[in-house]
């Protein structure tokens, strides 16, 4: 938000995404946790560092969805593709595999910030197809409103997540499908309102629960009466929100399990 190098367009997008993030937090945890930029470290703590190279045309950074791209090569951004010089290639020079590979190497260029299909308001993102309102998001298809995330399919309001397919309102969650309103949860499907949960199927309203099917109003794998669950949920999520608001961080589900940083 306070990046002096950001263009006016990018600043406007970040404002929209910040608003979307606050909305996602209200839906998911019941309160705002802070701004997108101030919680950047928290949201990206389990993500790989972004991969970037310098464009040979503008010398600006271009973002790539994978670190597999070579360190040295010809790179450019999607918007610079019309500025590519014409290929230096003569069909008559291709006699054998060596001449073919030489011609390929001379003329091949890699593109960062790739946007295929129809997209709008995308910045610092690569591998985007038919998406809108994204910043530092990679490998997304048919999705909207996302930041610091990757591998999205038909999803909206995704922040700090990896792999969300047909999901909405997910914050710092991993590998989820057909679900809504998750916080620090993973490998779940057809579920909603899960916080610090893993491998849940067809479940709703659970905290700190693992490996359940058809679970409802559960904390620590213990099913509770509805009237007992909601006050406890509000109390526990309230404490978590307060800690994140003040410290700008909270242990990940992996760290709570005894893992995390390696």
């Amino acid at each position: 938000m306070n990046n002096p190098g950001a263009s006016a367009k990018e600043k406007l997008l970040l404002q929209k995404l910040d608003s979307a993030f606050r909305s996602a937090c209200r839906s998911t945890i019941g309160s705002e946790l802070g701004g997108l930029e101030e919680l950047r470290g928290f949201l990206t703590s389990t993500a790989p560092p972004p991969t970037a190279r310098k464009s040979f045309i503008s010398k600006k950074e271009v973002f790539l969805y994978s670190p597999q791209y070579p360190k040295k090569g010809t790179f450019l951004s999607d918007s610079e593709c019309p500025l590519l010089p014409p290929p230096k290639f003569s069909i008559n020079e291709i006699k054998d595999i060596d001449s073919l590979l030489t011609a390929a190497k001379e003329n091949f260029s890699y593109c960062g910030d790739k946007h295929l299909g129809k997209n709008f308001e995308i910045t610092s993102s690569d591998g985007i197809m038919d998406c809108g309102f994204m910043h530092q998001t990679n490998a997304a298809y048919n999705s909207q409103y996302s930041c610091y995330s990757d591998i999205l399919l038909n999803s909206k309001y995704i922040f700090g997540c990896t792999y969300s397919a047909f999901c909405n309102f997910m914050v710092k969650s991993y590998h989820n499908y057909l679900s809504s309103r998750f916080f620090q949860s993973g490998y779940s499907h057809t579920s909603s309102d899960l916080h610090f949960c893993w491998r849940m199927e067809f479940s709703q309203e659970c905290l700190f629960s693992m490996n359940q099917v058809n679970a409802k109003f559960m904390i620590g794998n213990i099913p509770l009466p509805r009237e007992e669950y909601f006050p406890l949920k509000q109390k526990l999520l309230g404490e978590i929100a307060l800690e994140i608001q003040s410290k700008k961080s909270f242990p990940t589900i992996f760290e709570l399990a005894g893992g995390g940083a390696k």
Partner: peptide, 28 residues
């Protein structure tokens, strides 16, 4: 893994839940 659970007495505080969470935190 589904059969594991926290102690009901620890559910009322975040410290209690987080302190015992590792007991059931198994990832598939």
């Amino acid at each position: 893994a589904r059969q594991l659970s926290l102690q009901p007495a620890n559910l009322s505080t975040l410290k209690g839940v987080v302190g015992e969470f590792a007991k059931i935190a198994l990832f598939n």
